[in-house]
Simulated assay, not measured.
Amino acid sequence: MEKKIFHDFDLTAFWKDSDYARKRYISEPLTDDLIAGIEQELGYKLPASYIELMHSQNGGIPVHNGFRTTEVTTWGGKHIEIAGILGLGRTKAYSVCGHSGSKFMIDDWGYPALGVYICTSPSAGHDMVLLDYSQCGKDGEPQVVHVDQESDYKVTFVAKDFETFVRGLTTLD
């Protein structure tokens, strides 16, 4: 029997509601054609857990914006912070194929092309969260890593997969 994604997790309480999120992050509702087109454009099969979360709301600002790590990061401790999660779309600035999306971060900011950048941070582009396909291939289950532009694009392991990342988001003290 296959485990259901987010089977005991309340996705209805996951997102913050704000005008800023609606204007910059939240893309149109998902369709199979949109998902297929985005995957083709990116060149990666997106994790089922990421698609499931985007079905609840296609991008936005989560209620909890921190994740504890095992390594010290430039955030001054063993954690990272995110500002938002990019939706699957092309029209919102903070969508994976939008103006400030994954391709932009690789082409214009010089981030390593290891997968799909999915989370912005409060540093305004100086660090990002990535679905890292470097170990699993373009059709595998990517791990989640933090990439720090200010530290020569240092990669820090965050979570074994996207669902683990979402479940581990917390409000930091």
Rank of each mutant, 00 (worst) to 15 (best):
G43V: 00
E81S: 14
A21S: 15
Q57R: 15
F165W: 03
W109C: 01
V63N: 14
K16H: 13
P47D: 05
K4V: 06
P29K: 15
A36N: 14
E41F: 12
G110C: 09
Q135Y: 14
T156D: 06
G140Y: 08
K16C: 15
V96C: 06
S49L: 09
S123Y: 08
D32M: 07
Q57I: 10
R90H: 12
F14C: 04
P142K: 01
Q57H: 10
S102T: 01
T70I: 12
G43M: 04
K92P: 00
S27Q: 14
Y153W: 02
Y20M: 12
R167P: 09
H55T: 08
G60F: 00
W15P: 02
G76N: 13
I106P: 08
K103F: 02
P142I: 01
H7I: 08
K103S: 02
I80W: 00
G59F: 00
I82N: 05
Y117M: 05
Q57T: 11
L88P: 10
E39Y: 13
T73I: 08
S100Q: 10
K103R: 11
D148M: 03
D33N: 15
T91D: 11
L46S: 06
C97L: 09
P122I: 02
R24D: 11
V63A: 15
I38K: 03
G137E: 09
K16T: 11
H99C: 08
G76Y: 13
L131N: 00
S18P: 13
G59Q: 06
G60R: 04
V96Y: 03
L131P: 02
M1H: 14
D108T: 06
M105P: 01
Y20E: 14
N65T: 11
R22L: 15
V144G: 00
D148V: 02
G60I: 05
Y111N: 03
V129M: 09
K3M: 15
G87V: 07
I38H: 04
I5E: 08
Y94R: 10
Y111F: 07
F9H: 11
L34A: 13
K78Q: 14
L169P: 08
E163H: 11
K138F: 04
G98K: 04
W75K: 14
E81H: 13
L172R: 13
S121A: 08
Y25I: 10
L131Y: 01
L131I: 04
K103V: 01
Q40C: 12
D33C: 07
M105D: 06
Y44N: 03
G37Q: 11
K138S: 13
A36Q: 14
G66K: 06
K160Y: 10
G59C: 10
D139F: 06
R90F: 13
V96W: 05
Y25L: 13
A159Y: 06
T156F: 01
F67W: 12
D161A: 08
V158W: 03
K16W: 13
W75V: 00
I51L: 06
G101K: 06
C119A: 10
G101I: 01
E52Q: 15
R90Q: 12
T69V: 02
Y133D: 04
I26E: 15
